[in-house]
Simulated scan of single mutants.
Amino acid sequence: MQAASALFGSTTYPAIIRLKPRKGPSPAIVVAAAAGTTSTSTTESMAAKWAQKTVVIPPQRRGCHLITPKILREIEQDLSGFKCGLAHLFLQHTSASLTINENYDSDVQDDTETFLNRIVPEGRSAPWKHTLEGPDDMPAHIKSSMFGCALTVPITDGRLNMGTWQGIWLCEHRDHATPRKIVITLNGM
């Protein structure tokens, strides 16, 4: 139980991997030889590791918000320790969503919000049964399912390996938002 609770910090954890014995040199030594090195530190640097952190995004107005800079500030120390891997972002909410899209022109964020509001009806004339939490709640659940609550981004040389014009968006689908929690898990070498 203590080990499980430790996962919720931002500490990096080495993974234990057991391989079947085989003939010939270990894969780490083969990689080291191909790279022209023979040190045992290569074996250690090739070990898989994990890091995890929960990032809290303050309440945002309804719409799509570029959050890449905030995410990077929060994980940069852990991220820098990975040569190759994956970053998994998981939003712990059902009325907001995550997506990767345009990071330069904010008109794209506004146009995406316009599209979502046109495609998912809201208000008294909307056909939704679930209205206990307000007229924007059920449309928010549908919009959240459309974009999803999770992203996976490759890590290369200590950075998120996204395209030049790509950014991470938090899409807030409620009129009166609460802080949003994103669990970020880094895995790699």
Rank of each mutant, 00 (worst) to 15 (best):
I16F: 08
S39E: 14
K49S: 12
A15Q: 07
R22N: 10
H141P: 10
G85P: 13
L79C: 07
P121Q: 10
C149W: 05
G9F: 05
K70H: 05
S10K: 12
M162V: 09
S26E: 14
K83V: 04
L89E: 07
I29F: 03
I155P: 02
A28P: 00
P59C: 07
R22V: 02
C84P: 00
T43F: 01
I16Y: 06
W165D: 04
H65I: 06
N101C: 05
G163A: 12
I75G: 11
T40H: 11
G134F: 01
A6F: 02
Q166L: 09
F8V: 07
G85D: 14
T164D: 10
A150M: 08
Y13F: 15
N117G: 07
E74N: 10
K181F: 00
V153D: 07
I29S: 13
V153C: 11
S145F: 06
T94I: 13
A140R: 03
P69M: 04
T178F: 01
R159G: 13
F147K: 09
A3V: 00
A15P: 00
G24H: 10
Q92S: 15
L79N: 09
R180T: 04
P127T: 09
H130I: 12
T94S: 15
S95R: 11
S145V: 10
S39A: 10
A4H: 08
W165N: 09
I71A: 00
H176C: 05
W128P: 06
D105Q: 06
R61D: 12
N101V: 06
D78L: 03
P27L: 11
G167T: 06
D175Y: 11
K53N: 03
G167L: 03
Q60G: 00
G158D: 01
C64S: 14
D136L: 05
Q77K: 14
Q2V: 05
G81T: 14
K129I: 06
S39T: 12
R118F: 03
T131V: 14
P121R: 10
D157Y: 05
V153G: 08
S26M: 10
R73H: 08
S26C: 02
L86S: 12
A28H: 09
V108K: 04
H130N: 11
L151E: 12
C171G: 14
G123Q: 04
A48K: 07
L170S: 07
G148L: 11
L19P: 00
K143H: 03
R62W: 01
W165M: 08
P69N: 06
G134E: 11
G24R: 11
A51R: 00
F115T: 12
R118A: 12
C149A: 12
T37L: 06
